[in-house]
Deep mutational scan, measured.
Amino acid sequence: IRVFLPNKQRTVVNVRNGMSLHDCLMKALKVRGLQPECCAVFRLLHEHKGKKARLDWNTDAASLIGEELQV
């Protein structure tokens, strides 16, 4: 999953079965001084340019493999 972060940063996270978005993104956020409780995560909708859909931090990350997200 490719993730666009604040301050023009980005990362790619690996996903294993059973992991939530929170689990996958925790380290990437922590390294940058961010906390999931203070952030929202969105899936970028490529079929609708510029649109995005808000996701819950408990979403199964395996269902988002190959997607691009924005925090």
Rank of each mutant, 00 (worst) to 15 (best):
R2K: 13
R2N: 12
R2C: 06
R2H: 07
R2Q: 09
R2G: 08
V3F: 06
F4N: 12
F4Y: 12
F4T: 14
F4K: 09
F4R: 08
L5V: 01
N7Q: 06
N7P: 02
N7E: 08
K8E: 12
K8H: 13
K8T: 04
Q9W: 00
Q9R: 04
Q9L: 00
Q9E: 15
Q9S: 08
Q9H: 07
R10L: 15
R10T: 14
R10M: 13
R10N: 11
R10K: 14
T11W: 00
T11S: 07
V12M: 10
V12I: 10
V12H: 06
V13L: 05
N14R: 11
N14H: 09
R16G: 07
R16L: 09
N17H: 12
N17T: 14
G18Y: 03
G18A: 02
M19G: 05
M19C: 07
M19P: 00
M19K: 06
S20A: 03
S20V: 04
S20K: 09
L21E: 06
L21H: 02
H22F: 04
D23Y: 04
D23H: 05
D23T: 13
D23L: 03
D23M: 05
L25Q: 01
L25Y: 00
M26E: 15
M26S: 15
M26Q: 14
K27R: 11
K27Q: 13
K27A: 11
A28M: 06
A28W: 00
A28G: 03
L29M: 09
L29S: 01
L29K: 05
K30Y: 10
K30L: 13
K30N: 12
K30F: 09
K30H: 10
K30A: 12
V31G: 10
V31D: 15
V31A: 13
V31Y: 07
V31P: 05
G33N: 11
G33T: 05
L34W: 13
L34M: 12
Q35E: 13
Q35V: 12
Q35I: 08
Q35T: 14
Q35H: 09
P36Y: 10
E37H: 07
E37F: 02
E37L: 02
C38T: 13
A40S: 14
A40L: 08
A40E: 15
F42G: 03
R43K: 12
L45T: 13
H46S: 14
H46M: 09
H46K: 12
H48P: 14
H48A: 13
H48M: 07
H48S: 13
H48T: 11
K49G: 14
K49C: 12
K49H: 08
K49V: 11
G50A: 09
K52T: 10
K52H: 07
A53G: 07
R54W: 08
L55G: 00
L55T: 00
D56Y: 06
D56Q: 07
D56R: 05
D56G: 07
D56A: 08
W57R: 01
T59Q: 13
D60K: 03
D60C: 09
D60L: 02
D60E: 12
D60M: 10
A61C: 05
A62Q: 13
A62F: 15
S63C: 10
S63D: 10
S63E: 10
I65K: 03
I65D: 10
I65R: 06
G66I: 04
G66F: 01
G66H: 08
G66A: 02
E67S: 12
E67W: 07
E67K: 09
E68Y: 05
E68I: 10
L69F: 07
L69S: 00
V71I: 09
